[in-house]
Write a protein that binds this DNA or RNA. Structure first.
Lengths: 245, 245
DNA sequence: CGAGCAGTTGATTTTTATCAAGTAGCGTGG
DNA sequence: CCACGCTACTTGATAAAAATCAACTGCTCG
């Protein structure tokens, strides 16, 4: 079996998206359908890096010299307004790719939330390989499609959902993005702070806190710890997320 | 010169993005760098269609049998919540492609805003051609990147900008998407209603109307007609859009 | 043990939504 | 050609949601 530093260890060599339950589907939307030759070439370009909490992977406005494939931990991706208002456009976890949206310059800042590892590629080299490999190009396009669909759902959330609906949607969506750390069923790990959740959902820290308290009061969720939520009534939470309240 | 029904008439056969000032750049992010053979194959699959105002091109949840390339007019793309709240995720104009984000099912509804024409492809056929043509696949990926970047900017708008900042951003961005109808410099055509602008910016009709009135009162814009705005102080409008107020 | 930070909770303000009442533009039909 | 009625838009008054300001709690780490 090929040992690939560009993928989480226990994913290397696997081919089928559905076969990989331990490391999440999204690594495979890039790499899952590639032959060994492509995988090896991709891996030859890869450089494993570790990031401490808070360390930047990319900075908005800087030339996009590198692209990354996150292999463990979590990353926040955000844009800023001149006065400091921040919108987090996404959280990245193991298997997620950083840099799809950009051209020559990064259009966002990306920083590790916790201790994380990522696989770094020189953009020029990576693009050259991608353009030489139809399978890889196709895989990237699939990933881009998926991110675009997610972005559109997030627009619906930001433009039209109430604070409570936003939190419910967030708690339901998050597990599907954080595949390498399976918690017990119905448990959601929150590696990010309340402030980061707020900046992702277009709310304030206080509103996030209040809504979580309210959902707890309704018995819909339980706060196992500051950074872990248990979903007690999934059906109810789904109903709330879709505005059926 | 090849006559292509999949592109606005006066674009057919042109190759360089920068060379096409009359029909807009985005048609070329799909077709601009293809050779005549690819263009001809693409066109062989294309079927020109006309849509009256309000007619649907795609419906959320339905199987995605067709993809479209808009060749004239304008189209609204939106998602709904069960109670009817609507978020317009984008407006499409000549040259824009519809269906990038979807998989087997459409994840949005798309309807003509005004009398429009579009070029229809069977998704299966289109995908087969795309996968057989690296140049086309690459072009689609570039387009997807671009849309993803736009989506992230829209998230910043929806999550963190005030009503006034949203309108300013909207008025500044719109012209770059509506290429086939160049109005005089500093003029912005608004083919959509106030309600559609509101649903795109995450506001209400009344707020859109009030903010436009306020910007008019400050001498930043002038309402040439209900559906056309003149930007009187572009620098000021840009400052407002970025929150420097 | 204490300082600092993240989070919670409460009081108040602000922004925008909602409700309500006009007004203007436009197409239709007399 | 004008009157009518429809629809889109504007404007005003009020209400609601979330932001802001402020105080306090509790955990973590020197």
């Amino acid at each position: 079996m090929i040992e690939l530093k560009s993928l989480p260890a226990d994913c290397a060599g696997r081919r089928s998206e559905s076969a990989c339950t331990s490391c999440g589907a999204r690594a495979f939307s890039v790499c899952g359908f590639l032959g060994p030759a492509d995988l090896a070439k991709l891996d030859a370009l890869a450089e494993t890096m570790t990031f401490a909490a808070g360390q930047p992977l990319a900075h908005e406005g800087e030339p996009a010299e590198f692209l990354f494939n996150v292999t463990s931990g979590s990353v926040r991706v955000y844009k800023l307004l001149p006065d400091g208002r921040r919108q987090i456009t996404g959280f990245l976890f193991a298997g997620d790719f950083l840099g799809l949206a950009g051209g020559d310059q990064h259009l966002f800042t990306a920083e590790a939330i916790e201790a994380s590892t990522a696989c770094r590629f020189r953009r020029a080299e990576y693009n050259a390989l991608v353009h030489a490999s139809p399978a890889l190009e196709r895989a990237l396009l699939d990933r881009a499609r998926h991110e675009l669909a997610a972005a559109q759902s997030q627009m619906l959330l930001l433009g039209r959902k109430t604070a409570q609906e936003r939190l419910a949607s967030f708690l339901l969506d998050l597990p599907s993005h954080d595949p390498l750390r399976p918690t017990a069923a119905g448990r959601v790990r929150l590696p990010m702070t309340r402030g980061e959740i707020a900046d992702y959902l277009g709310l304030t820290i206080e509103t996030v806190s209040r809504v979580l308290t309210k959902l707890k009061g309704q018995g819909v969720i339980r706060l196992v710890s500051l950074n872990e939520v248990s979903i007690e009534r999934p059906g109810r939470l789904r109903a709330i997320a879709e505005g059926e309240t």
